[in-house]
Design a protein around this nucleic acid. Structure first.
Length: 268
DNA sequence: TTCCATGTTCCGCA
DNA sequence: TTGCGGAACATGGA
């Protein structure tokens, strides 16, 4: 689930439930999601500190701990946050839990453990080290930059949109949605896209991601609240295309299952 | 029981 | 060098 819109809403959730509150105690359950740091170091960095700032880049979320290091979080395929009160039970598959003095708790949960937690000095350095491209919703990703990025790229457009080194934040679901809304076939070669199509893709990318944030990406609410005209409400075998009522098809692209409408999305 | 899944990374091949 | 398919990772749900 966690692509850019989901992570943006996780950020807002964290800001609301955990930011600016002193962490009385921190528990690290599974070391498997830790990278380049120990459970002890994470506990020490969190305990008696508070999350002072937060920032998102693509699918990564960063939480600054007081004036110290940042906790860099990635949610893999199944990660999310959960906040619960004094009498609440910790969710299954909780990997990290923060306890606050009012008895409330905040947890990073990830059943499949593909998520990652690490301590870093500066998000900008981390982003550079990981080779991440500009955030898909950032100001820097102007049409001009978008065109330049795609300009020296070959291969299928769906792969390009999902390549975090090119643009950070888009995964399988939203690449499908963007291509559907833009009327572009997922197998279209990037080098075959004309200027007009690239402009449409850029505009559509921003619109789709913003809509998803607004409609509650990251929670089950999105499925009901997203417009019916969106493909993400019709991601199932044999579904009807919301635009032409033809059949939605699937195929393998970039190693994943792509949903698309062969009638509305023409290859060029 | 078997297959599939919203992500990333690594390996081998072209 | 770049692109691409497949496998691996861990777990739950259909």
């Amino acid at each position: 689930m966690p692509e850019l819109p989901d992570v943006e809403n996780f950020k807002r959730y964290m800001d609301r439930h955990a930011r600016n509150r002193i962490i009385k105690r921190a528990e690290v359950h599974a070391g498997r999601v830790l990278r380049g740091t120990s459970a002890r170091a994470v506990k020490r960095a969190l305990t008696r500190h508070k999350i002072s700032r937060s920032r998102r880049h693509g699918k990564h979320l960063f939480a600054r701990l007081g004036r110290g290091p940042w906790l860099a979080m990635h949610f893999g395929m199944t990660g999310y946050f959960a906040s619960f009160g004094r009498n609440g039970d910790a969710p299954r598959h909780e990997q990290l839990q923060l306890d606050f003095s009012d008895g409330s708790h905040f947890a990073y949960v990830d059943p499949r453990k593909f998520g990652r937690l690490r301590l870093i000095d500066r998000p900008d350095d981390f982003i550079a080290d990981q080779g991440l491209g500009p955030d898909a919703l950032s100001r820097q990703l102007t049409l001009k930059t978008f065109r330049a990025l795609l300009g020296d790229r070959r291969g299928e457009i769906k792969s390009a949109l999902m390549d975090q080194r090119l643009i950070a934040g888009i995964g399988n679901v939203y690449s499908d949605e963007i291509l559907f809304q833009a009327g572009v076939h997922p197998r279209t070669r990037v080098e075959h896209l004309d200027g007009k199509a690239i402009g449409t893709l850029h505009r559509t990318m921003r619109r789709v991601l913003k809509m998803a944030i607004r409609k509650g990406a990251g929670s089950d609410a999105l499925f009901e609240r997203a417009p019916r005209s969106y493909l993400l409400r019709h991601r199932e075998a044999g579904a009807r295309c919301p635009r032409c009522k033809g059949k939605v098809r699937t195929m393998k692209a970039a190693g994943r299952t792509a949903y698309y409408c062969p009638a509305c999305q023409k290859k060029r």
